[in-house]
Amino acid sequence: MEILVCIKRVPLSGAKFSLTADGRDIDTSRLGFTVSPHEECAVEVAVRLVEQHGGSTTVLSLGVEDAEEQIRDALAVGIDEGILLVTDGEEWDAQATAGAIVDAIAESGKSFDLILFGNESADASGNQVGIRVAHALSRPTLSGLKGVQVSDGVLVGERPAGSVREVFEVSLPAVATVKDGAAIPRYPSVPGRIRAKKKPVHRSTPTRPLSLLAKQSVSVPESVGKQTKILGSGPEGISALVDVFRSIGVI
């Protein structure tokens, strides 16, 4: 089977964000970058499915030129090739991102049996790119999965819902969005890193359409940095804490 997995380069967030001078974004000048945790799992799911059933895997990212780093990370854990849709760093909203991915799929000439996404990106948290791609391709989609299996051309997904796990089944070709916990991501090996350098990464530069959800500015919420009452150091704080338990009615 052929699998496509879509990932997004996001800053490795510290405790509290610093903003750029114009207040339009996070100041990432002193931050490292990674992929969203859900997508790390999506990559692992893709690699495992192909280990199990045979086939090939492609990783795609829409982002700045440096997003090649995240693509190479995925190639290092076993993805076969990459597609980088290069942007100038401006934000693409979910519709624009989904449109660019759909175009790139058409251009790739491949008919992916399964297209994997993270349920939502760590930064924009839009929860929708995968579902939009599924609709554009008229494919069934399952979202928020914490378990993904394929057998006999059927995608079986499951996810926790209260005290149960919901089980879904749709025929391939399909789209699935997964969450952290769907698979524990492996670490890249040194030979994996070396192989990753030689794997192909195809590039194209799509044109960004006007954003229909257009970010104007960002701010750090006030709840970050509330007054903390230090009850004590070491065991001396315990009786005060038991008083807190009493006052809020948990004992």
């Binding site: 509290k16 970050v224 509330k226 903390t228 230090i230 004590g232 150091s233 070491g234 005060a240 804490l241």
Partner: peptide, 9 residues
């Protein structure tokens, strides 16, 4: 930064 109460130790 988000805790209402803390014990350091």
């Amino acid at each position: 930064a988000v805790a209402d109460y803390a014990i350091v130790g």
